[in-house]
Design a protein around this nucleic acid. Structure first.
Length: 179
DNA sequence: GAAACGATTACT
DNA sequence: GTAATCGTTTCA
């Protein structure tokens, strides 16, 4: 029996993801991402809010790559970037609304070690690749646990990283991290 | 079929 | 500052 109940709790359910994307991005801070035996606490996220968001991959319409973002909430959107790094996202909002939250930073849990800063590095640390694209995050081996939510006063926000091409959307304060 | 381009990272 | 590296998307 574990002393730390936060890592034994059941995964977050679909209702958690079926909400406004910015709200989910904030609420994901402090939660625990688990892949098999590896896990980390989410400390940085970015919201990609829909087809009208020019920084969102779905803004170019539905393609084979982005199809999962148009599907039901609570699925993994995993893609390869720059030919060598994977990025892990959580699909949000109702089916038909193409939006997701990019997980950018993880911190180790108590007494554990994990490299996790940067979307590509955390995927390598947890062994996440495109074979998990579309995976239902309420089911193992890839899930999110409730962990400990972060109070609003401890959440900082700013512009997203690496989206300078997105015009006015490049400056939207849709990146969130624990202060 | 060809070409340009990344929601990045590591190294000079 | 810039190389690495290849799937996705766009254009002919």
């Amino acid at each position: 029996m574990r002393l730390d109940r936060t890592v034994d709790a059941p995964p977050l359910d679909v209702a958690f993801y079926d909400r406004d994307t910015t709200m989910v991005a904030r609420d994901l801070l402090g939660r625990i991402l688990v892949h098999g035996e590896r896990r980390g606490r989410i400390v940085e996220t970015e919201a990609y809010v829909g087809e009208h968001d020019l920084a969102c991959h779905a803004s170019k319409g539905r393609t084979a790559r982005t199809a999962v973002m148009f599907g039901p909430p609570g699925r993994a959107y995993v893609y390869l970037i720059y030919g060598m790094h994977h990025c892990f996202n959580v699909v949000t909002e109702a089916e038909g609304h193409a939006s997701a939250v990019l997980i950018r930073g993880l911190a180790p849990l108590e007494g554990e070690t994990l490299m996790g800063n940067g979307p590509g590095r955390l995927c390598r640390a947890l062994g996440i690749d495109r074979s998990l694209d579309g995976h239902d995050l309420t089911q193992p081996p890839l899930t999110l646990l409730p962990g400990t939510p972060v109070p609003a006063r401890r959440i900082a926000r700013g512009a997203r990283i690496g989206v300078d091409y997105a015009g006015a959307w490049a400056n939207a304060p849709l990146r969130f991290w624990i202060r």
